[in-house]
Amino acid sequence: MKVSRRRVLGVIGVAATAPLVAACGNRDSGPASVTLMLDWVPNTNHTGLYVAQANGYFAEEDLEVKIVEPGATGAEAAVGSGAADFGVSFQENVTLGRVEGVPIVSVAAVFQHNTSGFAAPLDRGIRRPRDFEGKKYGAWGSASERQVLASLMDCDGGSIDQIEFVDIGMVDPFVAWARGDVDFVWIFQGWTGVEAKLRGVDLRFLGLTELGCVPDYYTPVLITNERMIRERADVVQRWVSAVARGYQFAIDNPAAAAEVLVNSVDGINAELVRASQPWISGKYAEGATRWGEQATSVWDDYSQWMVDHGLQSRLINTAAAMDGSFINNR
């Protein structure tokens, strides 16, 4: 199925003001219709989702899945309110959401290790976190951005108060850099980092796991809400099983998976997808026995780190924030 990159906001807007009438998930009643909200425009972080759609894995689980791009409130708010059934999020956002009482739950890790970091063109003179002082940061609207940057600056002897935050939302970072709107942004190495090489743009990439200031954590993660788990656990299990098959296909067949993504999304950069997918496929389940696994220690360590640095008010209940049973039971 070809999915337009145009945001599907009408359904989400209605659902935000009234609960969705959800299928019960009983296979005898026909396919269950669910909505999946992405975190950003489609990219190779999402390949397994599109493979599950295109290869019929969702259909084999009696699921009809609508994939939509994020609205103004983001996937966490949409999933937490029931406006979307599933979403693509990040461990840092789930952690902050749980502290604030948002009933979202991570059911699978897209990657086993954090492949994100802060990037800037070489001419911006950024070599380490404290070099962010006096620079303009291209923010995309997550509450966790300021917390993570504050920790990095403190760790390296800088001050977050010396960073100018510029809200660029979903604007292409290369456009923002070229216009001089921003100096550095938070990117995924396997997508924007690969795109920089294709464009011939030399970037300084400061990977979060390489800086020694922030513990490794899961990003992105796939989320649902407590009500889905409580009332439609069978649907959640079927959805996770289909998605796991999609990502395993992408791990085993990077080139074929890239073509699925190219053929599924109108207007996507095919050259970038084909260059990114081989690198990304090697990262999905790196070091794990199966795709999607989550360790409670990773969640506990990140929450403790946030509390220790004064970035959140209390520890989260990891057992409520993360549910690995759907991956383990497939």
Rank of each mutant, 00 (worst) to 15 (best):
K197A: 13
N225L: 15
V171R: 08
V235D: 00
Y218N: 04
G200V: 12
V182W: 00
T192Q: 07
T224S: 15
G207S: 13
G193F: 14
G169I: 10
G134E: 03
R179H: 13
L152N: 04
G190V: 10
D154I: 10
P215N: 09
D156Q: 08
G158I: 01
L203S: 09
F188H: 06
G180I: 11
V166P: 07
A178C: 03
V182N: 05
Q112G: 13
V235M: 09
R227V: 07
G169C: 03
L211V: 03
T192Y: 05
Q147D: 05
V110K: 07
W177S: 11
M153Y: 02
D167F: 11
E195P: 01
I168K: 00
W239K: 14
G138S: 14
L211I: 05
E145D: 08
K135E: 08
A176Q: 04
L222Q: 05
L122A: 15
P173Q: 11
M153S: 05
L198Y: 10
M228L: 14
R238I: 06
G158N: 00
D131G: 09
T209W: 09
F174W: 11
V148I: 14
F111G: 01
S151Y: 06
H113T: 14
C155Q: 15
Y217E: 05
S159P: 08
D172T: 01
H113S: 10
D183C: 10
A242G: 11
A109T: 12
G125L: 09
D131H: 04
D216Y: 00
D202W: 05
V171D: 03
D156G: 04
I160Q: 02
G207R: 13
R124N: 05
K135V: 10
L198H: 10
L149F: 08
L149Q: 02
S142R: 14
T209M: 11
D156N: 11
E133V: 08
V182M: 05
D156W: 08
V194E: 01
Y137A: 11
L203E: 14
V194K: 10
D216A: 05
V166M: 04
A196K: 07
D202L: 08
G212C: 09
V171P: 02
Q237C: 04
T209V: 12
W191L: 03
M153A: 01
T209S: 12
A120T: 03
A139N: 06
T224P: 06
P129N: 06
L152C: 03
R124M: 07
E210H: 13
L152Y: 00
I168C: 02
A139M: 09
E145G: 08
G125N: 08
P121H: 15
W186V: 06
L149P: 00
R238H: 07
I160V: 06
N114E: 12
L198K: 14
D161P: 12
R128P: 05
S241N: 05
